[in-house]
Design a protein around this nucleic acid. Structure first.
Length: 600
RNA sequence: CGGGGUGUGGCGCAGCUUGGUAGCGCGCUCGCUUUGGGAGCGAGAGGUCCCGGGUUCAAAUCCCGGCACCCCGACCA
């Protein structure tokens, strides 16, 4: 008699465990899997015909419709059984590759004393995103959004000698971040599982090597997960650091803009490219006044003067912390990149208020660089000497034409603009596409070891700070990205490696029929052959079963019905592309395995 | 934080303008039929209409105050 998964649950102290397991824990035969023999009639796969009304992103709609996740609150999601299987398959791939580079898996707590975070300075700097709470003794606590503080504290206590280095520690742990705006289900949630690893090295060179080890492990992880991905240069962020890469999975729901050209990929935040040329009118001997009554936008002025927007210079006044004003000038068709600007200015700045602009320059809408005393930062895309630009005259309703940088105003140079599509890198035009950040690697240096006292003694007995790196991956984002990248109008199409099941076996026979009997037997054979199989043995119509199978998106669908059985065959459909083929009933399991092995 | 929107059965929605027995489709339960693309017939179950207060003989509906959730933007180690 068939034993349901529920009845097979081994419980501590229950003799049935021994009877069924024969002294061997049946749950260990398939690591990471909680249910070894799912029959859909006894499973929990809450599929929906329609997506939630408020879902926008494709992965959000499909994750819910396919019965993989359910919402608990804003940015808070539960994984349903099949969804968790896919998630755990990603986790297992990551685990194997981390172990392969010598990573040591640990587990650190989510709940942490605020004291640690006060020592690192992040109790303040992390801001509103850090969940804070108090314990019963009224001590300040935090829910950890990441684990640098905890792991560095351990390193400080446990690593004493250069002989203890290098080390890589990692864990899969729930992260808590009070996101200002959770989005698109698991793409940006307030609580999520992350693999974060931390490396400890003797010096900068050691960190470089460990960083490279991670980079190669990450390459393998995303390849094995079947994603379309690339790594990009990234902003090192406010916390400083010595280098960073982000791993991006391009897809429409992505929140990042990536600049891509042959041999080049970078986050728009840091990308640089050759600007597209703009034809400038010849410059007269000096600036000429151009009346522009009522015209305040670039588009209005360019339109009225019959010039391309790139022949105008846009003025972007900012104020530094010391209160001084800097006038950033860039082409009218370009936009300021705040991150590059901060880099050029050596720190943060803010946009000048209309009052500040009015007081120091002129009426907002027609401000410019000619005759002003403020420091001027000129974007690299602006050329000097090829012709005259149009700029604001710092007087209402008036612009100046024929303005030549260097002749009519002095400036400092910097690259402070956003790349736009069509700019070139090494002669190739770039495109800009949205992508999900599925992982990142970051050279921390000694930022945390310094403040948390993580040092070691070198050969000479000299105390030195440990060099650290940190490396993150979000398994849920990988799953969501895979859905985004490969779904079609019928539903999900999982990459083979991370599908919740290898095979979705659909029987069309009623209980007691010959088809059903053969299906039961094939189910056992598929499982014996090593394929994780979901068996749709429900008492439902064929249309419903096919629709659910295509929605769930397992790589192979095996159908047993009277039609093909008459010819001694079963039908196997490859989910991606929906190509169907007939396999002889004899040895069908082996043939299915063969087919499965050839899939992406 | 700024802007926009939505809360009515498990899901999708109508009803609200003009107050008067809470409805529709899907799903669910039972029976019969059906079984290669979300099947048919019949009989049922299931709702503090987000919460609190107010107006009124009477509030899903009108008024006041909250809360929750979504989308766009800002933000995002």
């Amino acid at each position: 008699m068939y034993q349901s998964p529920v009845r097979r649950v081994p419980r501590a102290g229950v003799s049935a465990t021994v009877r069924h397991g024969g002294g061997r824990d049946p749950w260990r035969t398939r690591p990471g899997y909680a249910c070894a023999m799912p029959r859909l009639s006894e499973y929990l796969l809450p599929t929906e015909r329609e997506p939630p009304a408020d879902a926008e992103a494709l992965s959000h709609k499909l994750l819910v419709r396919a019965g993989l996740i359910r919402q608990v609150g804003s940015g808070l999601w539960s994984w349903m059984p099949a969804g968790w299987r896919a998630h755990q398959r990603v986790v297992q791939i990551i685990r194997e590759e981390m172990d392969a580079i010598g990573g040591l898996e640990v587990l650190m707590p989510i709940l942490q004393p605020a004291e640690l975070w006060k020592r690192s300075g992040r109790y303040e700097s992390f801001g509103e995103e850090l969940f804070r709470l108090r314990d019963r003794k009224d001590a300040d606590m935090v829910l950890a959004p990441t684990s640098e503080e905890a792991v560095t504290t351990h390193a400080a206590a446990l690593i004493r000698s250069y002989r203890d280095l290098p080390k890589i520690l990692y864990h899969f742990q729930t992260k808590e971040r009070d996101e200002p705006r959770p989005r698109a289900a698991v793409l940006r949630s307030r609580e999520f599982v992350m693999k974060d690893s931390y490396s400890f090295d003797r010096d900068r060179e050691g960190l470089d090597r460990t960083y490279e080890l991670h980079a190669r492990a990450y390459d393998r992880i995303f390849d094995r997960c079947g994603l379309e991905w690339y790594s990009v240069e990234a902003d090192v962020g406010a916390m400083g650091g010595f280098g960073a890469h982000e791993y991006m999975a391009p897809c429409p729901a992505g929140e990042n803009d990536v600049v891509v050209a042959p041999g080049y990929a970078a986050n728009l935040e840091v990308a640089s490219a050759e600007p597209q040329p703009v034809e400038l009118p010849p410059a007269p001997a000096g600036p000429q006044e151009a009346p522009t009554p009522g015209l305040v936008t670039i588009a209005q002025v360019a339109g009225a003067l019959g010039l391309p927007e790139g022949a105008l210079l846009k003025a972007y006044p900012v104020v530094l912390p010391d209160g001084s004003l800097v006038l950033v000038m860039l082409r009218g068709d370009h936009k300021v990149n705040e991150i590059k600007l901060a880099l050029a200015l050596g720190g943060p700045s803010r946009q000048a208020t209309p009052e500040e602009i009015e007081a120091q320059l002129g009426p907002p809408g027609s401000i410019g660089p000619v005759g002003v005393s403020a420091r001027i930062l000129l974007d690299d895309a602006v050329v000097a000497g090829a012709g005259g630009y149009v700029v604001g005259a710092n007087r209402p309703g008036l612009h100046l034409s024929g303005v030549v940088p260097g002749r009519d105003f002095m400036f400092e140079r910097a690259d402070v603009r956003n790349v736009v599509a069509g700019d070139t890198v090494a002669g190739h035009p770039v495109r800009i596409e949205p992508a999900i950040e599925v992982g990142n690697i970051f050279k921390l240096g000694t930022r945390y070891s310094d403040v948390l006292g993580a040092t070691y003694l070198d050969h000479a007995g000299v105390s030195r700070p440990i060099w650290m790196g940190c490396y993150g991956i979000g398994p849920a984002r990988i799953a969501a990205a895979a859905i985004e990248q490969f779904a079609d109008d019928r539903g999900i199409s999982w990459p083979r490696a991370i599908a919740p099941f290898d095979v979705h076996l659909v029987t069309l026979g009623k209980d007691g029929s010959e088809e059903r009997e053969l299906s039961d037997r094939l189910y056992e054979e598929l499982r014996s052959a090593g394929l994780d199989t979901l068996y749709d043995d429900r008492d439902a119509g064929p249309g419903e079963k096919f629709a659910d199978a295509e929605l769930l998106g397992c790589p192979l669908r095996v159908t047993i019905g009277r039609r093909t059985l008459q010819n001694g065959e079963i039908e196997v459909q490859v989910r991606r592309g929906q190509e169907a083929r007939a396999l002889p009933l004899d040895d069908a399991a082996a043939a299915t395995v063969q087919l499965w092995r050839g899939l992406a």
